[in-house]
Design a protein around this nucleic acid. Structure first.
Lengths: 189, 189
DNA sequence: GTCTATAGAGTGATAGAC
DNA sequence: GTCTATCACTCTATAGAC
């Protein structure tokens, strides 16, 4: 429609590169010069497309959210949804950059003045809610073990994914999907 | 004995302050000038005691390890040891600085060239081993549920603690000890 | 769109006075 | 032990040429 039909190739290249480098070095650790150089640009060239560094980070996170929505099997619920999440973990261990991005930034953004702080507060609230919902559905299916609280199980699941990502980034022989799968099985009826 | 009897007051003050600020802002985010100012020093004054920033970080982590060893109830095993860990989580929510230090640095140190990278690789190997050992003991006591792998349970426990710390730092109403306790109960025979 | 050049601030570290 | 002054470098961002 009215949007620019072409010319976003550079923009896309910058977003992809910035995503990788924010993951590797964190937001503070990755400089605009480094990111621009890996795109074959100078840093003022990059700033033409994204006028501020914080704006670039925002765009990176926003694009990831859009990709997440595309990737999430739209209809899955309960056990099927949770099994899908184990598969997501298995798939993540093939894209180190993405794991780095969220593991590094969610810790860095713990500081209240970080440009992505509000984003991560909102993201965790949303994700914990979604995962808890899957356990509610699991319970309705009759597949949740007696005495397990769906809300706590949802929060546990998010924590487990985050913690395993750190362990995997420090030592890639850690089997994220295997540990998650074992955890899921221990919660089934 | 042969060690300097007094004069370490400044050194201790620097270590305490640096520990807090590395937690709040990360290693990269906390500058020597900031740390020194909060100690009532200039940054060359600080560098007299710790000649490099990486050396200061090393000293901060080393002092924490010594404190950890003091705090760990030396003899606890199995269920008693795991219950102690739930209490440690409850206590941690009263010392935000310490939680920040490890949550922030363990993500930052995921980068192979980070000055604390080797420290965290070794630390996780050690801690996962210790926690797994507690689950082996739990099994020997006959308190571990049928079909739960002690090694996986140890790794899960570490991941859960790390992930919960991030959630708690983003929203202090998250009940770290409560979620851990629920997890432990779900693993008992 | 992308560049060179530069402003203005911050960084870790050193030299040398006191 | 702690300071002032400074070095050499990096950072984000802007101005203005092409």
């Amino acid at each position: 429609m009215g949007e620019s039909e072409r010319g976003n190739a550079t923009r896309e290249h910058i977003l992809t590169t910035a995503s990788a480098m924010f993951g590797e070095a964190g937001y503070r650790g990755a400089s605009l010069r480094d990111i621009a150089a890996r795109c074959g640009l100078t840093h003022p060239g990059l700033l033409y497309h994204f006028p501020t560094k914080a704006g670039l980070l925002e765009a990176v996170l926003q694009r990831r959210d859009e990709a997440d929505i595309r990737d999430a099997g739209p209809g899955a619920t309960g056990l099927e949804a949770l099994n899908n999440l184990v598969e997501v973990a298995r798939h993540n261990s093939k894209t180190r950059g993405l794991v780095e991005l969220f593991a590094t930034l969610s810790a860095e953004a713990t500081a209240p003045d970080h440009p992505a702080h509000a984003y991560f507060v909102a993201r965790y609230e949303r994700v914990v809610g979604e995962f808890s919902q899957h356990f509610v559905e699991l319970q309705a299916e009759g597949n949740l073990r007696e005495g397990v609280d769906p809300q706590a199980a949802g929060r546990q699941w998010v924590a487990l994914m985050d913690g395993l990502q750190i362990q995997w980034l420090l030592d890639e022989s850690v089997d994220m999907a295997g540990v998650l799968d074992a955890h899921l099985k221990s919660l089934l009826a």
